[in-house]
Design a protein around this nucleic acid. Structure first.
Length: 721
DNA sequence: CATCACGCTGTTTTT
DNA sequence: CAGCGTGATG
C-alpha cells in the first residue's frame, strides 16, 4: 500500500509542496480553478499514508456536502481510510463540542438551536417591548433586524456602533436597536437557546477559557485543514488559532478575490492575518488555472484590475484558445429570458447536453422571468439557492412537532403547532403555553386545557400524538411516521398545492432512518441541512439545466456559464445600498461567477430596462443593471459587446414588441369573465386552476403541471380553457 | 378570539 | 413576491 500514489505526476510543483508539507502552519492562496480541492484531497491522502490516524485529521469546509465529497474522492482515489477523516462546518463542530461541554458556559447540553427563522420569530415577539410609537419613523423589518444583530455578533461589535457605521438609514432608532439586542440576548439565555452565531461564539469562548477542553480537542485533531478561508470571520479565525494552539499543524486554503460573505462578517484579510498569528507559516500560491480558457481568465484578471484593493495573484492557463466572453445587451428582461433559452436550444441542437450549462444570478428572484420561459419551452432545470427547503412553511410545521417531542420547553415550536389546531390562534396558543407551564402539564396533557372544553377535540388529537410518540425510544423513524399521520390532514387543509409539499415531507422519512436519536436528527437538519430536493433532482436527473445564485455556485464549474442580470428597479433602494465596500464585493461576486466557466462565458443584461418612477435614478444607472457596470468598463479586446434583444439571431427578423415588467402594463379588458375554479392556461406555466382573486386585476392560480402555486398573476396573461 | 381580505412596503447572498 | 398591519366579519 505504501507509496502507491505518484504525487509528482498528479500535481504541479506548488500543489505538491502544499501536499507534502504536513507539519506546521501553511497558508495556501489558491486562485479559482487552481486545483484547490485536488490539493486538499491529496493532502488528506498523504497524511493518512504517512501513518496519521484518519480520525485525528479535521477538515473544516463551508458546507457539509463539500467535506463529504472531498473525503469520498480521497477514499476512492487514494486510501479508503480517508472516509474516517472528520469533516464538516464550523457550526457542526461547534455543536458537537457544545453538546458535551455546554455546562462550562452555564448552558444545559440540551440547549435548543435557533435557525434563522426561529431567530426572527423571537425577535418579532420582542419588538413590542421596545414601545415603538405608531407612525414614528420607519423601524427595520424583522429580517433586517436579524441581519443587524447577526452581523454585530459576527463582527464582535456593539449594535449601536454597527448601526451608526453601516446602517445609517436606521440611525434614528439606534437606542431601540441596542435595547433589542439586549432583550434578544437575555431571552436566549433564559430559554437555553443558541442561534448560529452563538454556536460559533460559545465555541470560541469554550476554547479560550477552558484549557482542558482545548487540549482534549488538540489531542483529538492533530492536523487541521480549513477550506474557503477567505469566507471565515474573525471569530472563526480565533477558533482556528485555538484549535492549532498546541500542535500548530494547520493549513488554511482560500482566495482573497473570492470573498463574498462580508454580510455575515467574513473578511478576506483573515488570510493575511494568518501569517501574523503564525509567523513561521509557509505561504504557497496556486496560480495555474486548470478550468477556464485564457480569454475567460483575461477578462477576470481585467475585472480584478479595477479593484481598489489589489489582490494577490494573476491566473494563467495552458488552454490558450477559446472565445472571448460575450457581453450581450438583450434590451428587456423578457427578451433576455428568450435569448438565454434560444442560446441553449441552439447549443443543444449542436449536440451539447443540458447539464453542461449553468445560469447564474445575484439573488433568487432574479431568475423568475427566465424560469417562466424555460417552463414554457419545456427545458428542465433545477435551481440552487434562494429559498431554503427547511424554511418552507410545511417543513417547519412538521418539524415543530418533533422539536416539541424532543424538548417540551421549546415555546416557539409549541406556539407554531398549536396554531395549526382549528380555533386556536394567537391568543389561545399563548394561553395554552402559559397554562401548561404553570400547571406543569406535559405535551400529552394539552387536550385537558379548559379554555375549549366541550368542543370536539383538535387539542385532544394533539395529546394523542404526543402520547404515542413518548413511548417511542431510540431512532426517530417511528416518531416521524406518527407526526406524518397527524399532520397530513392539516397539510391538505392548509395548502392547495399539498401534493408537492407532501412529496417533500416524504423525503424526511428516509433521512430520519439514518439517525439514532431524534435530537441528532433535528440538530443535523438545522446545522447541516440535508441535500434539498433540488440537489437530489440534480444528482438523479442528468439531463437538466442548472440555475443558481452565485453564492450557491461556489466551488462548482460548468462548460458554459451564462450570467444574467435584471434591473433592480422593482425595489426602492435605500441610500446605504451603494457604499464602496459593497461595490468591491459585487466585483468579487462577478469574479466568482465568471470563473465558474470552463469554455464559454456569456454575460447578459437588459440594457433598456429602466427604473420605475419611485426609484432613485442615480442609483439605478450605476447599479440598476448591477454587475454590468463593471463589465461595461472593460476594454473590447477582452470582451465582445453585442446587442441581441430585438433581433432574432437565427432568422434576422424583427421580434414583436415584448411586454415590459408589470408596473408598466396597460390593462385592457377583453370581455371574458374569470371566476374561481375556472381552468386556465398560462403561456409559461401551462394549465392551472384559479384558486382565488387578489385585487381587481390579479388572480392566484394553482398550476398542476409545474406542481407549484404562483401568486398574483395578471389575468390578461391567462387564457380560459 | 379566530380568520380573512386588502393595502402598503421593500437589499441581497447563507451557516 | 411575501410579510406585516388593519379593519371587517364570523
Amino acid at each position: 500500500m505504501a507509496n502507491s500514489i505518484d504525487y509528482k505526476r498528479l500535481l504541479n510543483p506548488a500543489q505538491l509542496e502544499a501536499v507534502m508539507t504536513v507539519e506546521g502552519p501553511v497558508l495556501v492562496i489558491a486562485g479559482a480553478g487552481s486545483g484547490k480541492t485536488r490539493t486538499l484531497i491529496y493532502r488528506v491522502a498523504r497524511l493518512v499514508e504517512t501513518g496519521v490516524e484518519p480520525e485525528s485529521i479535521l477538515l473544516l469546509t463551508f458546507t457539509r456536502k463539500a467535506a463529504q465529497e472531498m473525503l469520498e474522492r480521497a477514499s476512492s482515489l487514494a486510501d479508503p481510510r480517508c472516509r474516517f477523516v472528520s469533516g464538516g462546518t464550523f457550526h457542526s463542530l461547534a455543536n458537537r463540542v457544545l453538546r458535551i461541554h455546554a455546562g462550562h458556559l452555564g448552558f444545559d447540553n440540551t440547549f435548543t438551536i435557533l435557525d434563522r427563522s426561529d431567530m426572527e420569530e423571537v425577535i418579532r415577539s420582542l419588538v413590542p417591548q421596545l414601545g415603538i410609537l405608531k407612525g414614528a419613523l420607519r423601524f427595520p423589518r424583522t429580517s433586517t433586524l436579524a441581519n443587524i444583530l447577526s452581523k454585530a455578533a459576527n463582527l464582535g461589535r456593539r449594535v449601536d456602533d454597527l448601526v451608526s457605521g453601516e446602517y445609517t438609514q436606521f440611525i434614528h432608532c439606534v437606542s431601540e436597536l441596542s435595547r433589542l439586542g439586549e432583550l434578544y440576548r437575555d431571552y436566549k439565555k433564559t430559554h437555553q437557546m443558541m442561534d448560529y452565531d452563538d454556536l460559533i461564539l460559545n465555541f470560541r469562548r469554550l476554547l479560550a477559557e477552558n484549557n482542558e477542553v482545548r487540549q482534549a480537542l488538540s489531542l483529538q485533531y492533530r492536523y487541521v485543514m480549513v477550506d474557503e478561508y477567505q469566507d471565515t470571520n474573525g471569530i472563526q479565525a480565533d477558533i482556528v488559532k485555538w484549535l492549532a494552539h498546541e500542535h500548530r499543524n494547520i493549513m488554511v486554503v482560500g482566495d482573497d478575490s473570492q470573498s463574498i460573505y462580508s454580510f455575515r462578517g467574513a473578511n478576506y484579510r483573515n488570510m493575511f492575518d494568518f501569517t501574523a498569528t503564525f509567523p513561521e507559516a509557509r505561504i504557497i500560491k496556486l496560480e495555474e488555472n486548470y478550468r477556464s480558457t485564457q480569454p475567460i481568465l483575461t477578462m477576470t484578471n481585467a475585472l480584478m484590475e479595477q479593484a481598489s484593493e489589489k489582490h494577490t495573484k494573476c491566473l494563467f492557463t495552458k488552454r490558450k484558445d477559446g472565445e472571448r466572453p460575450r457581453v450581450v445587451d438583450t434590451r428587456t428582461e423578457p427578451e433576455q429570458a428568450m435569448f438565454v433559452c434560444r442560446y441553449i436550444q441552439e447549443a443543444l441542437g449542436r449536440g451539447r447536453s443540458l447539464r453542461e450549462f449553468a445560469v447564474l444570478f445575484r439573488a433568487g428572484y432574479h431568475s423568475f422571468e427566465l424560469e417562466a420561459e424555460l417552463t414554457r419551452q419545456g427545458i428542465r432545470y433545477v435551481k440552487y439557492g434562494g429559498f431554503r427547503f427547511l424554511e418552507s412553511a410545511h417543513i417547519k410545521d412538521f418539524l415543530a412537532h418533533l422539536r416539541v417531542a424532543a424538548n417540551p420547553d421549546d415555546t416557539l415550536s409549541w406556539i407554531r403547532i398549536l396554531r395549526l389546531v382549528r380555533q386556536v390562534g394567537q391568543g389561545r396558543s399563548q394561553a395554552i403555553v402559559k397554562w401548561m407551564k404553570e400547571e406543569g402539564v406535559g405535551p400529552e396533557g394539552v387536550g385537558r386545557w379548559p379554555g375549549m372544553a366541550g368542543k370536539e377535540g383538535g387539542l385532544g388529537k394533539l395529546s394523542g400524538l404526543f402520547r404515542s410518540i413518548s413511548s417511542i425510544k431510540g431512532p426517530p423513524r417511528k416518531a416521524v411516521e406518527r407526526v406524518m399521520e397527524y399532520y397530513l390532514p392539516i397539510l391538505k387543509e392548509k395548502f392547495d398545492d399539498y401534493p408537492r409539499r407532501q412529496k417533500e415531507l416524504d423525503q424526511l422519512l428516509p433521512m430520519a432512518s439514518r439517525y439514532r436519536s431524534l435530537r441528532s436528527f433535528l440538530d443535523d437538519l438545522i446545522i447541516e441541512p440535508p441535500t434539498s430536493p433540488a440537489d437530489m433532482d440534480r444528482e438523479q436527473r442528468s439531463e437538466v439545466l442548472t440555475l443558481s445564485t452565485v453564492h450557491s455556485a461556489k466551488g462548482l464549474e460548468w462548460p458554459v456559464v451564462i450570467i444574467i442580470w435584471v434591473a433592480e428597479g422593482r425595489f426602492p433602494i435605500p441610500s446605504s445600498y451603494g457604499n464602496p465596500s459593497d461595490l468591491e464585493e459585487e466585483r468579487r461576486l462577478m469574479y466568482v461567477a465568471a470563473t465558474r466557466a470552463r469554455d464559454q462565458l456569456i454575460l447578459c443584461y437588459p440594457g433598456q430596462e429602466t427604473a420605475p418612477p419611485w426609484h432613485d435614478q442615480t442609483v439605478a444607472r450605476g447599479r440598476g443593471n448591477g454587475l454590468s457596470s463593471f463589465i461595461r468598463d472593460l476594454p473590447s479586446e477582452v470582451v465582445s459587446f453585442e446587442s441581441a434583444g430585438w433581433v432574432d439571431i437565427s432568422s434576422g427578423r424583427k421580434r414583436p414588441q415584448v411586454r415590459r415588467i408589470p408596473h408598466e402594463i396597460k390593462i385592457q379588458s377583453d370581455g371574458i369573465a374569470l371566476s374561481q375554479g375556472d381552468r386556465v392556461t398560462h403561456p409559461a406555466f401551462g394549465p392551472g386552476v384559479i384558486s382565488k382573486f387578489v385585487g381587481d386585476d390579479k388572480v392566484e392560480v394553482l398550476f398542476m403541471k409545474a406542481g407549484r402555486k404562483l401568486l398574483h398573476l395578471h389575468y390578461t396573461s391567462l387564457q380560459k380553457t
